[in-house]
Amino acid sequence: MDLLFIIDPLDSLKAYKDSSVAMMRAAQARGHGVHVCEQASLHWAKNRVAAGATRLSLTDNDEDWYRKHESQIRQLAEFGAVLMRKDPPFDLEYVASTWLLSAAVREGARVFNAPQALREHNEKFAIAEFARFTVPSLVAREMPRLQEFIDEHRDTVLKRLDGMGGAGVFRVRHDDPNRNVIVETISELGTRSVMAQRYIPAIAEGDKRVLLIDGKVVPHCLARIPRPGDSRGNLAAGARGVAQPISARHREIAEALGPVLAGRGLLLVGLDVIGDWLTEVNVTSPTCFREIQDQTGFDVSGMFLGALEARIR
Rank of each mutant, 00 (worst) to 15 (best):
L305F: 10
A40F: 09
L305G: 03
T279R: 04
A236T: 09
W44V: 03
S187D: 06
W44M: 07
G33A: 04
E252R: 12
K159H: 06
C221A: 15
Q39P: 03
P88F: 09
I225E: 05
E93Y: 14
M143E: 15
H121Q: 03
A109K: 10
I213G: 00
V300W: 11
D60K: 11
F112N: 01
S57A: 08
I150W: 12
R25S: 05
R141V: 01
E188V: 09
E63N: 14
H220T: 00
R224L: 03
R85V: 01
G270I: 00
H174N: 11
P144R: 12
N122A: 00
H220A: 05
H121N: 10
P201N: 04
I182S: 03
R25V: 01
T287F: 07
V218L: 05
R48K: 15
A236K: 10
T54R: 13
R290F: 01
H174I: 06
M1Q: 10
M23G: 01
L305M: 14
D162P: 00
V273M: 04
Y94K: 01
E38H: 11
E188P: 02
K159F: 07
L42I: 02
I246R: 05
E152T: 14
T191H: 11
V269I: 08
A248P: 04
A236E: 08
R85C: 01
S137H: 15
L13D: 02
R55A: 08
L58V: 04
A77K: 15
L3S: 07
K46E: 15
N180L: 12
D214Q: 08
I213S: 00
L10D: 08
T156S: 06
W277A: 07
K14N: 13
P286N: 10
Y199S: 02
N234W: 14
S301N: 06
D60C: 05
L261V: 02
L235H: 13
L58P: 03
V95P: 03
A237W: 12
T296G: 04
K46P: 01
G233D: 08
G168Q: 10
F149R: 01
P245H: 09
F289I: 03
R264S: 05
M84C: 04
L92C: 09
L13M: 15
Q28D: 05
K124G: 00
S187W: 10
A196T: 02
D151K: 15
L10E: 06
E93I: 01
D175N: 14
E38P: 02
Q147G: 09
P136F: 12
L235R: 09
A237E: 05
A131C: 04
S231H: 15
A128W: 06
P136A: 07
G108I: 06
A239M: 06
